[in-house]
Amino acid sequence: MNKHAIQLTINGTQTKAEVEARLLLSDFLRHDLGLTGTHVGCEHGVCGACTILFDGDPVRSCLMFAVQADGHAIQTVEALGTPENLHPIQAAFHEAHGLQCGFCTPGFLMTLVPFLEQNPNPTEEEIRAAISGNLCRCTGYQHIVDAVKIAATNYTNDTN
């Protein structure tokens, strides 16, 4: 099978790779690059676990081919904080108990980072609309919504 040479920026680092056309972007990130923070849930665009930022916008990485990322910039959950220095959104999830098993969490985080940047003072309704494309099967959504509210407050305080 023919391979395609691609060049892209991943979490700020220029990366080159050769990929088969049918390789999903989600599998490229996990298997070829070892960025296993991006989770694969349903593989048909329903669950949102594989959400990444594609040129800054949240998209499903299971609904793109790796070859389509040629020339683009991708951010995965690995681009956020470290265990010692959590990103404000990660800290808020920690504080509000916004995760239990954690499987869906990377997708929620990558959906919420640009959302809070564009909308630092969201209403509860806006928060629920923003996370409508991400499924969580254990803690439920209330703590996640609480986490977003905490993160929003922290964001706003930081900016002030």
């Binding site: 609904l63 409508s132 494309g133």
Partner: peptide, 12 residues
């Protein structure tokens, strides 16, 4: 537009 799937789908 907001009725069409989810934000991540609408981005693509």
């Amino acid at each position: 537009m907001p009725h069409i799937a989810h934000p991540q789908i609408r981005n693509r």
